[in-house]
Design a protein around this nucleic acid. Sequence first.
DNA 1: CTATGTTTTCAATAAATTTTGAAATTTCGA
DNA 2: TCGAAATTTCAAAATTTATTGAAAACATAG
Lengths: 168, 168
Amino acid sequence: MKLIEAKQQFISSWGAFGTHWGINRTMAQIHALLLVSADPLTQDDMMEQLNISRGNTNMNIRELINWGLVERILLSGERKEYFTAEKDIWKVVRQIVKERKKRELEPMLQLLDKLENVEGDKRDKHVKTFVDTVSSIKKLGKQADKTLDMMIKAEESWFVGTMMKFFK
Amino acid sequence: MKLIEAKQQFISSWGAFGTHWGINRTMAQIHALLLVSADPLTQDDMMEQLNISRGNTNMNIRELINWGLVERILLSGERKEYFTAEKDIWKVVRQIVKERKKRELEPMLQLLDKLENVEGDKRDKHVKTFVDTVSSIKKLGKQADKTLDMMIKAEESWFVGTMMKFFK
DNA sequence: CTATGTTTTCAATAAATTTTGAAATTTCGA
DNA sequence: TCGAAATTTCAAAATTTATTGAAAACATAG
């Protein structure tokens, strides 16, 4: 397979993959394109390679910057802005985990804390089922929170190496 | 907070949560409703409690059954079908992980295997960047695959207990 | 300061996804 | 076997989400 074709397959699959994880196709595709590009790209480069409009490109680049996955680069002597993606995949994963944890897991845990204190007699099976379900989700969520915190702080080599042995 | 109100908040948040993870709102809400219901429910119960149509209810119940999260129950002497959700959250998580791994991670790893063998000279920086990116994603993906396999096989008590110590 | 190239915004439009509801099919008691 | 109850299907409608493109805002060289 030729490079250009391989790139296209990668970009297209990464886009489809993203849509299963609540990320829009274009955002995932821009990210993929930057991941496999040796040099920084301009908005116009992306528009051309992905066949998307200027507005779409611009909005999704900014969103990727918000997620901490893409960086704006100013080349001296150049009027245009250039962009690159973090290429260290372990860093990318940690960054995504960090953001999603903050945006989703933490608010959910807060809500569960509140819901656990519902009024009513726990001997009533309806109350009991509710409280038991909420409590067990909370317990698992808290554990996930801790585990992810550790993962965010860990170095890849440490993480992979230790997990390897651990789960041999 | 009253039970009925708490249930509603739980269902509504679970639905919103689901949409961030590529799961449609109704499917997540039906799952949530069943999780906090003490007794099995019929389609009509769900239609009424969630204010959704018969067709929508039916399709999403079937999808939940495909995911292995909901079970059909036949009560003797009853014409209607009843449904319950697996209440053991650890089992639920393992089931979801198992399915998503099969549907998403495994196909992605297959693709990366193929893309890694792109034609061209690796001294060309464009080829090198592509191959390096694909390889490092593949490496991390394979590690995730193993880790998740182990998690799928593990008992919750073992998992949480060991992780607790591990990440103390 | 001005002219020109570049980026950003956002209302309108398009596309994708979800939901409905009525008809078709299936199930099962009598 | 028949017929009422229950389930399933799926084309059409509604809703949500993504994308466009032109106008406005901004930035910089001259």
